[in-house]
Nucleic acid binder design. Structure first.
Lengths: 119, 119
DNA sequence: ATAAAGTATGTAGTATACTTCATACTTTTC
DNA sequence: GAAAAGTATGAAGTATACTACATACTTTAT
């Protein structure tokens, strides 16, 4: 069980940002049962996983609310299996679209580089 | 030569957003020489190209200032050939990174879908 | 020729995603 | 046991990327 400082060091995400993600409902720490002197929050390994996923997803242009949908489908067992599948399969489609867009950009830029080189 | 309305219709980007991009230096319209009654701006086909590029690049998480760098390297002949190449090659690397991240996310989500299906 | 639609300009407002600050308490270190 | 470092909370501030509004002028349609 990790405290927020360790979480930050493992992921490179600032503590303030992690707190912001927690407030936004993307991750959740828990109070250690039995500890009454403080109200420190502890985080499991799943939270590190989630934070890494957030980093990746943000880097490819997903918003926090889109990311939250995926994380909820992933970890919350509350919603129906079908609803979980729907969210995840939609994300797969969107990921595939982004890959295609990136490949198109790559081709464009490579053409441009060739033009510059041929001058 | 197109007016802003046509530009908007061809790309699906709102007029206000196109104006914002122009103010941000990503695209540029020109006054028709000889026309003195108005100050309407006209746009060439390169602007449509640029707007489509902006749409794609934004969809995969590039910021407007990153996009501006690429567009400048692309169209502005002012900067040195080497500087142009540097910008474009860096973008190629970043695009490749994003593709890898998307593929990693794809795998993760597919694993998750399999787990849900197997319940 | 007049109303409707288009264009330009400037300013203000909004949403997202942080980031900083102030305060207060707890734990660790020397 | 006192200072330094860590944690929690709430509120305010910032950056990016729009989005809407008000005004004024121009062009197009009827």
């Amino acid at each position: 069980m990790k405290l927020i400082n360790q979480l930050s060091k493992e992921t490179g995400i600032p503590i303030a940002t992690i707190r912001f993600y927690e407030k936004s409902g993307l991750i959740k720490g828990e109070k250690k049962p039995g500890v009454t002197t403080n109200n420190y929050l502890y985080y499991g390994d799943d939270v590190v996983e989630k934070l890494r996923f957030i980093q990746m997803a943000k880097a490819v242009g997903f918003t926090l609310s889109e990311i939250k949908e995926v994380i909820d489908a992933w970890y919350l067992k509350k919603i129906s299996r079908k609803a979980q599948m729907d969210v995840l399969e939609l994300k797969l489609v969107q990921i595939e679209e982004k890959i295609q867009e990136l490949k198109a950009m790559k081709r464009q830029i490579m053409t441009c580089i060739k033009n510059i080189a041929a001058r």
